[in-house]
């Protein structure tokens, strides 16, 4: 029925009421096709993380609805139900806070495998090891606890855990902002591999370098609304909105230099 794998229609999210009312997301619509990499870019407070949480099934929208394969997924419930819950998985920003400090990487991933596949412990561990290996975590490191791993390794364990459900959509909320440059390159190589395997990725970030590298389409978010959206390459080469121009000019290094020249004439 629907051409889109995941779709947000006129979604708004409001927190609080009266004088403390905050409209975090205001009437935004977004589409994602199977196997497509898209980006949501904006500054802190733009509402991008809230939108990601709505898309991941962790935060019901105040208004509007999310459709997965054409079917409404919230239907008034507090979280996703049914198939969408398994097929849409999320990787969080903070690799230090998103893993249970008491569990080894292997047990964290195996636990997720057991929940989704209902298999026994032994089988889940075999599958977990496979997933971790695919993420470049060797058996020796898989048996370590989070505190013994580097930030980049922890983030790869988180991705392995998200993949344990065998999802069709991976939402990544600033997955590279807390890790250093080399670890970032490693993680992005992995994401590129996942795209080749047919996974759709929603990359939420304020880092336009990451967005340019990985995504085909991008939504630029400011104060809860999309100010500009379109093909990533076109937006980078020819931004329409002043806000997008400013964002581009703020990127350090080569990418920003060109944009700065355009902005300041």
């Amino acid at each position: 029925m629907s051409d889109f794998l995941l779709e947000a229609r006129n979604v708004s999210v409001t927190f609080g009421s009266g004088s403390t009312k905050v409209e975090a997301v205001k009437n935004v619509s977004l589409t994602l096709s199977a196997g497509e990499p898209i980006g949501i870019v904006g500054e802190s407070g733009s509402g991008k993380s809230t939108l990601a949480r709505v898309l991941a099934g962790l935060q019901p929208p105040t208004e509007g609805e999310i459709y997965f394969n054409g079917q409404p997924v919230y239907n008034g419930a507090k979280s996703y139900t049914g198939e969408a819950r398994r097929q849409v998985q999320m990787v969080f920003q903070d690799p230090y806070g998103s893993l249970n400090p008491q569990l080894t990487g292997l047990s964290a991933v195996a636990e997720a495998v057991r929940i989704h596949d209902k298999c026994d412990k032994k089988e889940s561990e075999v599958r977990a090891l496979e997933l971790l290996k695919r993420m470049g975590i060797a058996q020796l490191d898989a048996l370590k606890k989070p505190r013994q791993l580097s930030g980049g390794q922890r983030q790869r364990v988180s991705v392995a855990r998200a993949l344990s459900a065998n999802p069709t959509v991976l939402l990544a909320d600033e997955p590279t902002s807390a890790i250093d440059q080399s670890a970032q390159a490693q993680l992005l190589n992995l994401f590129r591999g996942l795209l080749n395997d047919g996974l759709a990725i929603v990359m939420v970030s304020h880092d336009l370098g990451v967005i340019r590298y990985l995504t085909k389409r991008v939504y630029v978010m400011k104060d809860g609304v999309f100010v500009e959206s379109g093909v990533t390459e076109e937006i980078f080469n020819d931004p329409r909105e002043d806000y997008t121009k400013l964002l581009l000019a703020s990127i350090p290094g080569h990418l920003g230099t060109a944009a700065r020249k355009k902005l300041h004439g």
């Binding site: 580097s150 440059q181 080399s182 970032q184 390159a185 490693q186 992005l188 190589n189 590129r192 370098g209 990451v210 340019r212 590298y213 990985l214 990533t232 390459e233 990127i251 350090p252 290094g253 080569h254 990418l255 920003g256």
Partner: peptide, 23 residues
């Protein structure tokens, strides 16, 4: 050299990024 080549602002979109071996 390795730091330079793992820079994302100089990489072509979707190309293999160079990573530094080990930690």
């Amino acid at each position: 050299v390795a730091l330079n080549s793992s820079r994302i602002d100089v990489a072509a979109p979707g190309s293999e990024l160079v990573t530094i071996l080990g930690s």
